[in-house]
Design a protein around this nucleic acid. Structure first.
Lengths: 136, 136
DNA sequence: TTACGATATTAGAATGATTATAATTCTAAT
DNA sequence: ATTAGAATTATAATCATTCTAATATCGTAA
């Protein structure tokens, strides 16, 4: 079943303005966990030039409504992820790529008195491409 | 077996200046994953007043030498952890406490072509104290 | 002890991501 | 068309971190 972005936003209680739809679409289709500036630059390139502030406002709104998540790799800029379902992230320390990794969600075993809302699992190391190059 | 901080730093190739020893001791004994400013404020209070820059330089050195790790909860300031061995972190979204959680290190199964150097596991939710208060 | 070179520390300026502010524009309902 | 509320915007402000260049400290050799 295909849902368009307008309906998706509405279902999350978000007024689907054209900027919001464009920002969501970019987040949903890009593979590389864009930063605010990536989003801003992309929409500028497309000719929809507007303000960085709108990008900040919008991603904050999406986060609050649970539509996207932040990617907690240790970088100074925030990165975002609209991919559904739990997955880990792998950051290559050499080329900087940030990849989604299918993994089951780790559970907080032995601590029934904690209520977990969010789980973040990040691996850091060397990706296959960089390992291969290093072998030369 | 007890090792003093001076020897520990030396063993990691770090010249154990008095500032470095004090910063390490504070990191190692504090339970709350201090920020740079926490460290700075603590040493000011103790009467060892010096520069924030030294704290930044020192934690960066400790990180490089593998003596401490960053805590990747989503906050604007960096937090540090000198506790040995892998453990997860739990951040309470209500009171802000950041707690160590004993857990086994998640493995990157099914991806033998990746080389993992570091693993970070963070849970976010409500801690027992806040859940109890909420029940009232 | 004194001088020297290397390293560590420091204050303050610069940077850069994010947030706040306040004005303008858009939208939908009357 | 008017109006109210929300969304967008440019700009300024904030604040953690990094950079820079000057000073202090330490160990060692003369």
């Amino acid at each position: 079943m295909i849902r368009n972005t307008v309906d998706l936003l509405k279902d999350h209680g978000i007024n689907p303005s054209s900027q919001r739809v464009r920002i969501y679409d970019y987040l949903a289709t890009s593979e590389d966990h864009p930063t605010v500036d990536d989003i801003y630059a992309h929409l500028q390139r497309e000719g929809h030039l507007f303000s960085r502030a709108t990008v900040y406002n919008t991603v904050k709104l999406f986060l609050k409504k649970g539509l996207i998540r932040t990617v907690r790799v240790e970088e100074k800029e925030m990165r975002f992820d609209a991919a559904p379902g739990f997955h880990a992230h792998f950051k290559c320390g050499n080329c900087g790529a940030i990849l989604d990794i299918e993994t089951e969600r780790p559970r907080l075993k032995g601590h029934p008195d904690y209520e977990v809302h969010e789980t973040s699992l990040v691996f850091e190391g060397l990706c296959p491409d960089c390992l291969e190059k290093e072998a030369d």
